[in-house]
Design a protein around this nucleic acid. Structure first.
Lengths: 249, 249
DNA sequence: CGACGTGTTGAAGGAGCTCAATCTAAGTGG
DNA sequence: CCACTTAGATTGAGCTCCTTCAACACGTCG
């Protein structure tokens, strides 16, 4: 119970440590969670709306997103996830998946039986608190997105999404906000913002023409972060990355 | 520690019991939380974006909502809450309020020091799990709202909100979905849906003209629930009110 | 009574949509 | 190595929800 042969859950420990200081025993307990790592191709549905998932899923590498489908077949993307993110704690704990999770690149995922997650929260309440905190931050991002979709123009909304992705990737050590990977199609971006791909395309070009960001394949460069932040009405407080006071200790 | 003189937190117990079967000790522990009940008038800001709240807030009676303000002064409402709802577990646990909470009627609230909430999760992990579950359901509703705002027409979105409010009020025993109280102004509804009050007004009248619902003061009557559900593209699964398998036991 | 918050209505304008075509890059099979 | 395919990006033209602006109506409350 002290060491673990496969360190694949290390990204999960890293993510949880953002929210709580974990001691050795707690870290070991997370690493000791039974899990089956798996390589999946781009576009794989990890969980489907309506499923009763018995596992939670940690994204070890790659990109994924959560989506819902409306009655008339439109898609809404409600979250974007990066390596280290604990996707789908929500679906597995709630019992019934109210949304799907899909990879948008080749990815490595680890499935953890939900029973073990629940047991872990009893054995190590502080780990439970960290996971709770993680889902609370997810919730905060959802609220920001409601405002982004409902109350911002296409131009501001797009700039905002770029800012959020850059900031979150930097926080996870997966890039710098001035230059990061963003392997999303314009259609996916449209489903994040509640727009059409056509309008996303035009708006993106407009932002690019103004020098607010530069596209290079599937990478984004931001020459003047402060300016993009301003155009995107972006304030990173809702990401809760700075926590002057941890919940405990 | 066994009984509590003021049973004001009973609504909180009722709400948590939706998510987990609590035993006597656990119920007692919730009721024993130190709290200061308070009567507040309509429009009171319980928490303000940017605050560092030291308390969580349980809504004992009345209606409230959560809101964010964008850079150019527009408002986005991200949640509506009823008697029994535990509002603001999010802000107090995250440390920094990323949104405001405001009453929309006269209301009774109970403030609970966040220290005691955290201690409770250590003393009674199952209560912690129930609170976690509660915030996860909040998150599920946020996701649905992202879809509602981003991918549904004004007409469908409004009908959807009416369905959600009716269903949740009935689940909390605060009315029947065929007839319930909804003390929201059209301006507030507009901020829920990312629309203008003017357009909400026109759309509401359209729905009413089609007999999809009837307004009586601040009450709503739904003559044909199935029809409203259909127009609103409403499926209550995301509210997670039926839980065939509880997390434990 | 006057003031204010809320609801209602009309007319004109615009942000973003629809439809439809074309272009580009990255496979894929032969 | 090239023809063929396909997913995604790009562009144009016309249209439509929804917005903006501006009145006006109604009820409540000091």
């Amino acid at each position: 119970m002290s060491t673990n042969p496969s360190p694949s859950l290390a990204p999960m420990v890293r993510k949880l440590s953002l929210w709580q200081d974990l001691n050795d025993a707690e870290r070991a307990a997370v690493l000791a969670l039974p899990h089956t790592p798996q390589r999946v191709r781009s576009g794989t549905m990890i969980v489907r709306e309506g499923d009763r998932p018995q596992h939670s899923c940690v994204l070890i590498s790659g990109f994924a997103f959560r989506q819902k489908t409306t009655g008339d077949g439109m898609r809404s993307i409600s979250a974007i996830h990066f390596a280290g993110d604990i996707v789908d704690l929500q679906n597995s704990l709630l019992g019934l998946a109210d949304h799907s999770v899909q990879t948008m690149t080749e990815a490595t995922i680890a499935l953890i039986p939900r029973e073990n997650i629940i047991q872990l929260t009893f054995a190590h309440p502080k780990v439970g608190l960290a996971m709770w905190h993680d889902t609370l931050v997810d919730g905060s991002i959802f609220r920001e997105w409601i405002a982004n979709v409902g109350r911002r123009s296409a131009r501001t909304g797009l700039a905002h999404v770029l800012c959020e992705v850059g900031t979150r990737l930097e926080a996870l050590n997966l890039g710098r906000r001035e230059e990061f990977e963003l392997p999303m199609t314009q259609e996916q971006l449209a489903d994040v913002l509640g727009l059409t791909p056509v309008h996303v395309n035009r708006t993106l070009k407009e932002l690019e023409a103004e020098g607010l960001f530069i596209r290079e394949q599937r990478r984004v460069r931001v020459p003047d972060w402060a300016r993009l932040e301003k155009v995107g009405d972006f304030n990173d407080a809702y990401l809760h990355l700075r926590h002057p006071e941890l919940l405990l200790r």
